[in-house]
Simulated scan of single mutants.
Amino acid sequence: MKILVTELMWEDGIEELRRLGYSVDYDMELSRKREELLNLVPKYDALIVRNETRVDPEFLDAAKKAKVIGRLGVGLDNINLEAAKERNIPVIPAKNANATSVAEYVMAAMLDASRPLSDADADVRRGNWDRRFFTGYELNKRTLGLIGLGEIANRTARRAKAFGMDIIGYDPFVAPFDHVLAETGVRPVDTLDELLSDSDFVSVHVPLTKATKYMINKDNFPLMKPHAYVINSARGGIIHEQDLVEAIQSKKIAGAYLDVLEKEPVEKDSSIAQIESIRLSPHIAGLTDESQSRTAMLIAQEVDRVLKGGESICAVV
């Protein structure tokens, strides 16, 4: 059987598929060559994608032989799940494989905001020695607000707790005795507004849906503390980017760490790229050697399970 990989996949996952006896074709740029992609997919029994490949009805109609689609990550906004379900094609994301890496990204962002060592290094190399300007603050006793209380938030909370932070969370789908509340000491709040107003750092951990589109915007930025930072490692479009720029320019909040943007890659003349206190990274929060190895191996093994007639424990449709 043949498997097509359309985006970046760590080599150990590809080697695992070949060890299991599959013929694997791999082109990490194929997601950007739509016409070529649509001409290729009819030949394959399984397709493995990341976040750039648009798995829509046109794609699924072309994938006439496909028995399964593997997703190298957890976000599913590029995949039409209803269309996959109608065609009886299971979709398998890499459940929790990158959760630790994303949690560590959030910690890195908060540490950078409180102690900007790279800025201090650059200033010292310019011949300065401004100890007062680079006096930071402790994360201890600061409040971290988590929007969404899934596995990434759970692991973030455990790490933040070790730094002595107070942690609050907003998630209307989490019950009082779910593990993230019962075992990590996260204090639930009833509304998003309450979380925004009480937090020194706000970290986003929800999928992009109709309900979460622009959920942080000009109407609720004024509720936040003027020294607060917002961190988005989830999906672009959850934070209204122009409203964020204006909130920082008007000193309603201090800044932001954005690993994801509504349009990726960022445009050079984008206003969001002009604000120094908005720190940008190229969608790498979950991208570490360890997490990508786990992701690749998980998807390889779960795709193999389905192709051999079994069911994947990670399947969403």
Rank of each mutant, 00 (worst) to 15 (best):
E194V: 12
P222G: 07
F173T: 13
D190W: 12
V174W: 00
L223M: 06
G169K: 05
L181Y: 14
K210F: 12
E194C: 06
Y170C: 01
F173W: 13
D171E: 00
L223T: 07
L196W: 01
H205R: 06
T184F: 11
D178F: 03
Y214C: 10
A211I: 06
F177H: 13
H205D: 07
P188L: 13
F221D: 00
V186M: 04
G185Q: 09
K213T: 08
H227M: 08
G185H: 08
M224K: 05
R187L: 15
D219A: 10
S203K: 03
L208A: 08
F221R: 00
G169R: 01
D193L: 00
E194N: 10
F201G: 00
D178E: 13
E194G: 06
T212A: 01
K225H: 05
P226F: 07
K218V: 04
Y170H: 01
T191A: 06
V202R: 11
F173D: 10
L196G: 05
D198A: 15
V174Q: 03
Y214N: 15
K225I: 09
H205T: 08
V174G: 07
Y170W: 00
D200L: 14
T184I: 10
K218P: 07
N217H: 08
V189C: 09
H227T: 14
D190M: 13
P172F: 06
M224I: 04
E183A: 08
P226I: 06
V186Y: 02
S199W: 11
K218A: 11
N217A: 01
T212S: 07
T191Q: 04
A175W: 06
K213Q: 07
K218Q: 08
N220Y: 02
H205Y: 10
F221L: 00
P188R: 12
K210G: 15
V186H: 00
F173K: 12
T191V: 08
M224H: 04
D171S: 03
H179F: 15
S199A: 15
M215W: 03
M224A: 04
D200K: 12
P176H: 08
T184K: 07
D198R: 14
D200Q: 12
L195E: 06
A211R: 12
L192I: 06
I216M: 07
Y214W: 14
F177P: 11
T191F: 00
D178P: 09
S197H: 14
A211M: 08
A228I: 03
V180R: 00
K213G: 05
F201Y: 08
L208P: 10
P176N: 05
V204A: 04
L192Y: 01
P226L: 06
A228L: 06
V186K: 03
